[in-house]
Amino acid sequence: MIIYDIIIVGAGSAGLSAAIYASRAKLKTLLLEKNRCGGHLLIIDLLENYPGFYKGISGFDFAIKLEMQAKEFGTEIIYDDVLCIENKLNVKKVITANSIYESRTVVIATGTSLKKTNVLGESKFIGRGVSFCAVCDAPFYKNKDVLVIGGGDSAVQESIHISKFANSVTIICKNDKLKAIKVLQDRMLIHKNISVIYNAIPKEFYGKELLEKVTIMDVNTQQKKDLKINGVFIFIGLIPNTHFISNLITNEFGYILTDENMNTSVSGFFACGDVRKKQLKQVVTAVSDGVQAAVSAQNYIEENI
């Protein structure tokens, strides 16, 4: 059986960056991905804050470039779902849905999934009016009325994107103010078809074939109200994808704890990107994490094996 120097789990910005550095350093590198390369990049319409890309770049184009660069340096990419990882003496066994792979080091770069509201009717209407991807679905709401749930950066940024198509965008936010950064809130004000309802949460989604109505509730007065809408976009935060590793590596609410060199609580295991407990979750910080994880893995191999 081949023993890889480094297996990277997850091919988003962090995992692909780790793969580029690891394979360029001539480590035998395997990148395991459940779906397709790119992760959250695939739902970014325009990546406009990545230094060096004047006027921005689409998340998709950026993902393709990272993937090509990793392959160019010799990264092997296999599409498979990692079920669990066993830490044996000097070797780590990565067990997937279809196979078993062995490696000297493992980098966890599995990122996060979008959180659901778990409100009545939500799952019934996913793809029938309930969406988690504005880039994918906003154009279907031309001249329609849309509700956005959430109050952070994503909720406001995506509302601005949706407002270019929709007749109206109503943001419902569970707090008495939005958490989004000021530059986004200022930009939102220019778009006159966006309004905000504060202190409100969704209670139920209704409709026949497609979504037609959402009941919302004021968190202070408990008063309920029905809103007639055609679509709901949900941006209420993220959950780390660590179910397959959470019993092995120390984590906080699922987010993996690391030091500044991406070392986890278990030697030879590294974590990078959004899956790690950290303050700033951006493409540029994920890329930086990935690079550090690859270099730390390389140092580990040189010192220990």
């Binding site: 790119g38 695939l42 970014i44 998709f60 993902a63 994918c136």
Partner: peptide, 11 residues
């Protein structure tokens, strides 16, 4: 599919 949809291109 549509040209602006990243996941569509990946598919």
């Amino acid at each position: 599919w549509a040209p602006w949809c990243g996941p569509c291109k990946m598919l």
